[in-house]
Design a protein around this nucleic acid. Structure first.
Length: 298
DNA sequence: AAGAGATGCAACCGCGACCAA
DNA sequence: CTTGGTCGCGGTTGCATCTCT
């Protein structure tokens, strides 16, 4: 038994919007607002459109003060650094760019910006594909995210991160938004990239060294409270993206790019960027974490 | 010039979150 | 607490346009 549809699909128009439809919707919303109910809105104005479709059209196209195309270098930097930090949270990224919609940014990232920054890697992949499509497919199949422990997205962000670190072209963003990769991350990334380029067998993530008797407490500063995380051993690799844990005895605790994880105190974090640890390593002060209790972002 | 493939973007889909009853 | 309705988000698709051969 599936979910009930939000509207009568058979009597709803789909596809591109006409100028008349645009004008009708725009006029109504500008005069009356949405009324807090997108589902009922098309009926009110006599349109054969799904309420969700109206909402999307308004938010992505008809809303005033929207910018289309022509992303600036500064916007590129912001998108890139936020993507590295928080992943594909397009609505959050869009909130930092006035006049831009999440859909716009998502499209821009997927079609242009990603290629601009990771273009070389793609060319290499295409070359591989041309040389031996069958073999390539076979390897792709076996090199699923779980085989090397990192999803494509996580690997992509690691690669971007390293690449951008080397550019060092925007001092502000560089220091504020792009924390240095931990040596372990660098090693991991280089290993993954090397593995990919060589079309090798699947790479298994190394297990983290077992933490010793460190009494350090990782502290994350969140918007509403502080979370004390027991630095007991974290899992690395596995089905989701895990690069986290206590890496050595010097207190350089690390949490990075997990899609989701649960600490021993039961707090779930979702797609974190990095934590600062209570050790005085200023390069780890930036964090982007969402915890299960709703707290925390940057 | 024409066909094939690549690219860009608007729109759709499905799911989880949220909220009120 | 449960249920049903709506919202908002991220992933995906479809199609028009562009580029290459």
């Amino acid at each position: 038994m599936g979910r009930a549809p939000c509207c009568d699909k058979a009597n709803v128009k789909k596809g591109p919007w006409s100028a008349e439809e645009d004008a009708k919707l725009k006029d109504y919303i500008e005069q009356h607002g949405t009324g807090g109910n997108w589902i009922a809105l098309p009926q009110k104005i006599g349109m054969k459109r799904c309420g969700k479709s109206c909402r999307l059209r308004w938010l992505n196209y008809l809303r005033p003060n929207l910018k289309h195309g022509g992303f600036s270098e500064e916007e590129d930097n912001i998108i890139c650094s936020l993507y590295i930090s928080i992943g594909s949270r397009w609505s959050i990224i869009a909130a930092q760019l006035p006049g831009r919609t999440d859909n716009d940014i998502k499209n821009y990232w997927n079609t242009r910006l990603k290629k601009k920054l990771l273009g070389r890697r793609k060319q290499q992949q295409q070359l591989h594909h041309q040389q031996s499509p069958v073999e390539h497919d076979h390897q792709n199949h076996h090199q699923s995210p779980s085989s090397h422990g990192l999803s494509n997205s996580a690997l992509e962000r690691l690669q971007l991160h390293m690449k951008l670190q080397t550019l060092n072209q925007n001092p502000l963003l560089h220091t504020m938004l792009w924390p240095k990769l931990h040596p372990f991350q660098e090693k991991l990334l280089l290993q993954a990239m090397n593995d990919e380029n060589n079309n090798n067998q699947s790479m298994q993530l190394p297990l983290l060294p077992q933490p010793t008797t460190s009494n350090e407490t990782i502290t994350t500063t969140t918007t509403t409270n502080e979370i004390n995380v027991d630095p007991s051993p974290f899992q690395l690799g596995g089905g989701d993206d895990f690069i986290m844990g206590n890496l050595d005895n010097s207190g350089s605790s690390l949490v990075w790019w997990s899609n989701e994880f649960e600490t021993s105190n039961g707090v779930n974090y979702d797609r974190s960027g990095s934590f600062s640890s209570s050790s005085n390593d200023s390069s780890w002060e930036y964090c982007a974490v969402r915890s299960s209790d709703g707290a925390g972002l940057f």
